[in-house]
């Protein structure tokens, strides 16, 4: 009948009015600068470059393979390869990026660079308060601004970082084992060669 639905609606808004004072369920607003939501494992904002150890230049995992640059959908990554080599995260000598720029005004936080990276070198950051008063230079981040330590990565994505660390440790162990095996083989070969030469020498004698 006339007005009944209107009265029902009025009752509902009144219920919500009073409910917002008593029920946490109803008043879900987060008072932002004072209150912050807890960190989420999967959160992502802009990419950063992971480095191991103390020195960000020495420890950088990136080997400038250009995969992320190629796969980045909005093409916001720019890499220039170095001419010399340095040991990478697992200890193999590799190229490293001389220039690594990300234009975060173009980046759309899609995480594809992270997914395609075979070296676990680029990861997603969670920091989001990046406002700047310089539209161009302030939003073009270079290698130094992008480099963050592995400890930071462990802090923002603990589960993911643990898995990455484990995989890297395994890889390192493998490489180390391989290197050791190679060294052993080399040593053995040298020893064998030495032995054979000595035998030869002995027989010659």
């Amino acid at each position: 009948m006339f007005g009944e639905g209107i009265l029902k609606g009025l009752a509902e808004t009144a219920r919500n009015f009073f409910g917002s004072y008593v029920s946490k369920d109803r008043l879900t607003t987060v008072q932002f600068p004072e209150q912050r939501l807890p960190q989420i494992e999967a959160a992502r904002n802009f990419p950063f470059l992971v480095y191991d150890g103390e020195d960000w230049q020495q420890g950088m995992r990136c080997v400038s393979c250009f995969i992320c640059e190629k796969e980045c959908p909005p093409k916001c990554i720019f890499i220039e390869k170095s001419t010399d080599k340095k040991p990478d995260a697992v200890g193999k000598p590799q190229f490293y990026p001389k220039v690594f720029n990300i234009d975060v005004s173009v980046c759309m936080s899609c995480q594809i660079c992270v997914e395609v990276c075979p070296f676990d070198a680029i990861k997603m950051d969670v920091a989001f308060e990046h406002s700047t008063n310089n539209r161009f230079a302030g939003l073009l981040w270079d290698k130094k601004e992008l480099a963050k330590p592995n400890e930071y990565y462990r802090q923002i994505h603990p589960i993911e970082a643990a898995a990455v660390d484990a995989a890297l440790a395994e890889e390192r162990a493998k490489v180390a084992a391989k290197a050791k095996a190679a060294a052993d083989a080399k040593a053995a070969a040298i020893a064998a060669a030495a032995a054979s030469t000595s035998v030869e020498v002995a027989t010659e004698k």
Binding site: A14, N16, F17, S20, L27, T28, T29
Partner: peptide, 10 residues
């Protein structure tokens, strides 16, 4: 404020 509370805002 009243509208806000009715709409579950501050």
């Amino acid at each position: 404020k009243g509208l806000g509370r009715m709409q579950n805002r501050y």
